[in-house]
Amino acid sequence: MKTKKLNVKSRTENLSLIRDFVSSSAAEAGVTSDVIENIILAVDEACTNIIKHAYKSYPDGELIVKTKSTRNRFIISITDYGKSFEPDAIPEPDLQKYYRQKRVGGLGMYLMKTLMDDVKYVSIPGKRNEVQLSKNLKLTQQNVR
């Protein structure tokens, strides 16, 4: 099992750095490029939510992105030390309703759940939050052997 780690500050300017890090870790793990596209979008959405909601755009919070690959899964965990998050409090988005209310929040979380196979939140209030995103990998000839 290979793990990799990236520490950055909670700033949107670091989103491209995070995407590049996850993209190269996933490529190294043998993830196909179309799946990598979905994974980096899900990770971008998770980190954007952390920057805007957990840290409320405070620019010097810590954001730790770890990637891990096993034989059949690619897992990204993102840790922050901001305000804890209750994922169940976020409803599934209704775009027609959003259109009327000019609301856009919640789209990111919907994308994360749609693009990944599993999204899990673990919060220790006042200490740290972790979101774990997993993608099941199709077995290729090479890793079947």
Binding site: L41, T48, Y99, K102, R103, V104, L107, G108, L111
Partner: peptide, 16 residues
């Protein structure tokens, strides 16, 4: 090359 929901949100914000 790439769009996230923050980009999609811009279209929602001004369309009305």
């Amino acid at each position: 090359a790439y769009i996230s929901s923050a980009g999609l949100g811009v279209f929602m914000a001004y369309i009305e």
